[in-house]
Design a binder for these strands. Sequence first.
DNA 1: TTAATTATTGACCGTTCGTTCTAAATATAT
DNA 2: ATATATTTAGAACGAACGGTCAATAATTAA
Lengths: 206, 206
Amino acid sequence: MTLHPELERANSRGRPRQFDPDEALTAAMRVFWEHGYAGASISILVKAMGLNRGSLYATFGDKEALFHRVMELYEREKTAYMMDALDQPTARGVAERLFRGTLALQTNSDNPKGSMGIVHSVSHAPGDEAIRTFVMERSNFWREKLIDRMIEAQRQGDFPSTIDAKSLALSLKASSDGLLVAAGTGASAAELSGIVSIFLATWPGK
Amino acid sequence: MTLHPELERANSRGRPRQFDPDEALTAAMRVFWEHGYAGASISILVKAMGLNRGSLYATFGDKEALFHRVMELYEREKTAYMMDALDQPTARGVAERLFRGTLALQTNSDNPKGSMGIVHSVSHAPGDEAIRTFVMERSNFWREKLIDRMIEAQRQGDFPSTIDAKSLALSLKASSDGLLVAAGTGASAAELSGIVSIFLATWPGK
DNA sequence: TTAATTATTGACCGTTCGTTCTAAATATAT
DNA sequence: ATATATTTAGAACGAACGGTCAATAATTAA
């Protein structure tokens, strides 16, 4: 793992790049999203990104560094709704925003199906431990935020005190993950919407 | 992909095996469960199974055939509770049996964490399409059974007619999958139990 | 005892993997 | 023009992959 060189260098000297780094990164995100880290070979990546091996390593560092860049982009462009959800005024609002965001993400035909996070969280392939650790850190960060938010919601009386706030948070995360699994394994938009309807209909409190 | 030879051949002639095929298969199941199909290299498998490459191929056929054998064993020994759940008298009973079974499976310290099915369902690595298709067929079979069961439950008045039976079935599957994801990504037994409590507390009807 | 049969062992095959490297191409600064 | 800087292109690297094979060992049938 190396520190990556700057993407935008504003060079004046030297032969100019024949590819756009941002477009290449977007293409790489799609490849990792569709195929997973292990399945995204350098050969597939360079073809999709429109550059050659040398340029990939010179611009982005090695495969792991490229993946880190891709995850940044993924979280900024695709899963920002997860942090947004925490700002909703009630626990139900958080759940609703979370589910609707997932629905929108998975229904958008431009996006590959399923979640980049989950794919890499559940895979224990040798050689991918570092990747799994990296993804899990992000996932755990989000998990803690959600627990804190539900504890706060309980203080505000959003749901009965008989319900354990942490468990509610974890069940919300599990439901969201289950929805993403369904999306990644071929469920239709109508089916996903139906699942969300049930989740929201059975949500306890306001 | 080749047709596998018989596991138990009752040979009298020839050099006897120095390993037990059933034990070897159980060891292979653990490896696939922990590392996934792509991550379970032949080198890792033969070491865990206590035989050499030649014997593996002679006894079980190629890697894909071995995986099929492993999935048979996995479903027979580990996930039988899923089909059992369908026999419960009410919709709530189905959900309860399903969740309790998942809890028991994931809490048993002899078992690797997470679900073999989900790991291979969400992985789109090139070269694993056949594996993914195979696993998805099993998953879809179970899915259809669950939908039929919830339609029947609605006819019997287990939950209000305002609820869409198919969506309830899919949400139950999503919840179960989410629980398995949680289990596979390090959730404690107490946390898993808490999630199940929420799921059951919010289950609609009897 | 001999022939036939089956299992074990480890070398070996071609392919693909991530990564590196060298030579050629293309730009700017002087 | 010439030197310097950067990218491109593709060959090449060692390691690991799934899979095969010939030689040897161990057993039973004749």
